[in-house]
Simulated scan of single mutants.
Amino acid sequence: MSGIDLGNGVVGAILGVVFATLFQQWTQDIWFRIRRRSAGMVRSLTFRERQGVPWSTFSLGPLHTSALIVEGDGDRAIAPEAVHVQVLTDEIALPEDMAGWRAEIEAEESRAAASGERAAVWNGPRYAVESLEISRSALDEQSEVHLRLRPTDYYTFLAAQQLDRRLPDGSTPRTRYLDPEQPLSAPAFLQCSFGVNIAVVTSDHLLVVSRRSDRVRVGAGVWNSSVNEGLSRHIDSSGRNAPDLHAVARRGMREEMSLEPHEYTLSLLAFVLDVEKRQWSAHFYARLGDMTAEQLTARMSRGVADRWEHQGTEYVPFRSADVARYLLRPDRIHRWAPVAPALFHLALVHVHGRASVERAEAQAIRRL
């Protein structure tokens, strides 16, 4: 190599270092801005494409449910006096081409009872949901819930649950009467169910999880909330008074766990709609004052009024990470009642705070 070539090489190396030093940050900034602008354009295009998509139902990683949280985020409880329930007088009537389905159910239950094949399903008086409207109080913007109900019965409920059964014209109740882009709009005869679901936590910080009996007509064998109770016209409406949702929750605590009101605190967290089955629910959180899981098990072993509705109970540490892992267990993830995961999430948020809960849930999802 000649002296000239060596000199040129040294000069080139020096200039390279100088240019790298002077322009490296500048080129990195340019590249970062290009990437950020491109990502922003992609997000904006995606956002425009997704405009008009219906409200999303509750999900947790690979766990997807049909539970739509209509009101409440778990952070603040909904006050009892903020819930206004009105019962309309006209009873629900099924359309003519669905009325025969109810007649089929009634005839089958009568036949089963007469033959002694099995116990007939009791056609209990229930409520259908005419509408549920949300507003805010003027001063502190607290939730105000207006729930309007109509009388119905259990056989009508069972008939209306056949949302995908073919009608004479080839349509189904789901395709004829429901708009997926307006999940809160539905005729009352398709919404013949309103109940309460309660997440119960013992004094030693364990969440109670129940499994529904294989003998129930709806949701047999699935894992569910600690307590689940449907509104009954016969039991929950004293005289002409509309039902009180907190009173219904207390009835559920008594009938399914043999617990009395002085043994726990009760908070209403949310109103939730199972959009797949058109079943409404009020979600509650109950904290036992002095009763541990062991004591609760002993209490229930001495007799529970509605024991037949459940076939098992498990206890889970009421920590965000533990509950999230439990919800996502391979043997649970496809065996949940639709509203239970949302209920447990809201109860965690109510106690531990949203940021903490979502961090723990995200970590549980990453570890799958």
Rank of each mutant, 00 (worst) to 15 (best):
I333P: 02
V216L: 04
P168F: 07
R329W: 06
A247G: 12
S135V: 05
W31I: 13
E109N: 10
Y315Q: 09
D274R: 09
C192F: 00
V227K: 00
Q142K: 15
G74H: 09
S44H: 11
E144G: 06
G289M: 02
M41C: 07
L368Y: 03
A340S: 15
A113Y: 03
V85M: 06
L343T: 05
I134D: 02
E104T: 15
L6G: 12
Q311V: 00
I365H: 06
R102S: 08
V42E: 12
D90L: 10
Q191M: 04
R278K: 09
V85I: 09
L245S: 04
E71A: 15
L163E: 03
V83G: 04
L167K: 02
V201E: 11
E309Q: 00
A82F: 06
W26F: 15
S237D: 04
R166E: 14
D322F: 01
N123G: 08
V339L: 11
R50C: 09
F284R: 01
V222M: 00
R250G: 03
H345Y: 14
P330W: 04
G239Q: 09
R251C: 03
W223P: 00
H234R: 14
V357Q: 09
G40R: 13
F19W: 11
A324M: 05
H246K: 11
V316R: 05
D90A: 15
S66G: 06
H345S: 11
A298F: 01
F32C: 03
H345M: 09
D97L: 02
E358A: 05
A199N: 01
I365R: 14
S131H: 04
P54M: 06
A247H: 11
A247W: 02
E141D: 13
L268C: 10
R37H: 06
N123F: 07
M257E: 05
S320H: 05
W336R: 01
A247P: 02
A39L: 14
S115W: 05
S115K: 10
V248I: 10
T57K: 04
R240H: 13
G239S: 08
A321T: 07
S66R: 11
R240M: 09
V17E: 05
R43A: 10
T297E: 13
V196D: 01
M1Q: 09
V272E: 11
A247V: 10
H310D: 01
R33I: 07
A112N: 09
A249M: 06
A128D: 07
I198A: 00
F23N: 14
V323T: 03
S143P: 12
P95N: 09
D29L: 12
H205K: 12
D331W: 05
R148H: 14
L184V: 13
E96D: 14
Y155N: 08
D204K: 10
F318M: 07
G312F: 02
S258T: 12
Q191H: 03
V145C: 15
H64D: 04
L184D: 15
T265M: 03
W122Q: 04
R325E: 14
A99H: 13
L132A: 15
A220L: 00
L149K: 10
R278H: 11
R211T: 07
